[in-house]
């Protein structure tokens, strides 16, 4: 596969129930394309955490995925409140999520650490009041 396959998703910020549909779609696609189970799992977990974060913190956003032979690149962008202290947000266990989010099973402060754990390259840009952009790369 020489060319790059591009996928675009709008992530609905109002519907917690449907959160994860984009990641599930990417997972299905990568499986069909024959990527290894480990690669498929790393991509889907990292993207799923990003998707959940956009829904619970930022009111949704967009996800762009580029699939090539060497790597899978995921760019998640939102226009939410932004992250005040990125270093703190990167540490395991730190969370600003509301109790309502915790009762849904998220907000344990593992989202960003998990995205980092499963990717080969992780980049987070955020401006308070403007939004957040997360770029994840998983080498195949």
């Amino acid at each position: 596969m020489g060319e790059i396959l591009k996928l675009h998703f709008d992530v609905d910020g109002d519907d917690f129930t449907s959160a994860g549909e984009a990641s599930a779609e990417v997972k299905k696609k990568l499986r069909l394309l024959g990527y290894s189970p480990e690669t498929v799992r790393r991509v889907s977990i990292a993207m799923y955490e990003g998707e959940i974060n956009m829904v619970i913190h930022a009111g949704g956003g967009v996800a762009d995925v580029e699939i090539s032979e060497d790597c899978i690149k995921i760019v998640l962008e939102d226009h939410g409140p932004g992250i005040e202290n990125i270093e703190l947000a990167m540490s395991e266990g730190y969370s600003t999520a509301a109790d309502a989010v915790r009762s849904l099973g998220f907000g344990a402060g593992m989202g960003i650490p998990n995205m980092k754990r499963y990717t080969d390259s992780f980049n987070l840009e955020s401006t308070v009041g403007v939004g957040t952009k997360v770029t994840l790369v998983i080498n195949t």
Binding site: F16, R41, I45, Y48, E49, G105, A108, M110
Partner: peptide, 24 residues
């Protein structure tokens, strides 16, 4: 009951026990 804790460690062919009930 915390899904992010579940996602922190990859386990092959695993069973998940939980008291949380939702789509996630």
């Amino acid at each position: 009951d915390m899904m992010s804790d579940v996602l922190a460690y990859v386990k092959d062919q695993a069973v998940l026990l939980t008291g949380l009930v939702n789509m996630q």
